[in-house]
Amino acid sequence: MELEQLKTSWKELSVKMEKAEIFNRKVTMNMLRRNAKSSAGKLEKYEMIFFVISVLYTGFLGVALTLNESTLIKNESIIVCIAVFILAAIWQGYKLIILQQIKFDRCSTIELLSRVTKYKLLTKGRLIAGMIMLIPVFALLIYFQRDMMVKELWIGMIAGAALGLVIGIRTFMNHWKNINELMTDLEEIKSYDSLSGE
């Protein structure tokens, strides 16, 4: 089928659609009355919750640091945790900014696809970077709290780490297909970039 044939078939279908009952006013009215949220709106809410949690924990740990007497929990351990939550808050904040730039009515198709791809890559990136960063963070925490480490605690930690690794690898494999799809989108956007340079 060539483009002109495709055009003719499409036209025929359009004419039939004009006559068909494809739009249910009552159901749509009910949906509007319920104030159904768009997917972008839901994502924004979700990212905002994580942002607020990160900020609250940073504040809480900051207070804990000033009050801590370094007997059981070392100040260094609290500082490591604060650093993690600050990083998480920055990451979430950046994602929120990108989400707010996704304007369905104002962006062109290419612009929107590029922003959405960037947001999705950041989301996948959080997963990968988070998993990788857990290793040095835990190493530092163990080092600072080494006086606390008894044999039972070591066994528990090793078992937890093994389980975490399995879950992490499984999640990563599940996301790999999506990452590949995002890479294809990136390639497509780049091809439009080279087109504008011609």
Binding site: N24, M31, S39, A40, K42, F104, C107, L113
Partner: peptide
């Protein structure tokens, strides 16, 4: 823009509007 962004997850959200045809 909505269709291209695919932000919607397959099983999340309220039930879809059933199209009559």
């Amino acid at each position: 823009n909505t269709c291209i962004s695919s932000l919607r997850k397959s099983k999340s959200g309220p039930q879809s509007i059933p199209l009559t045809r």
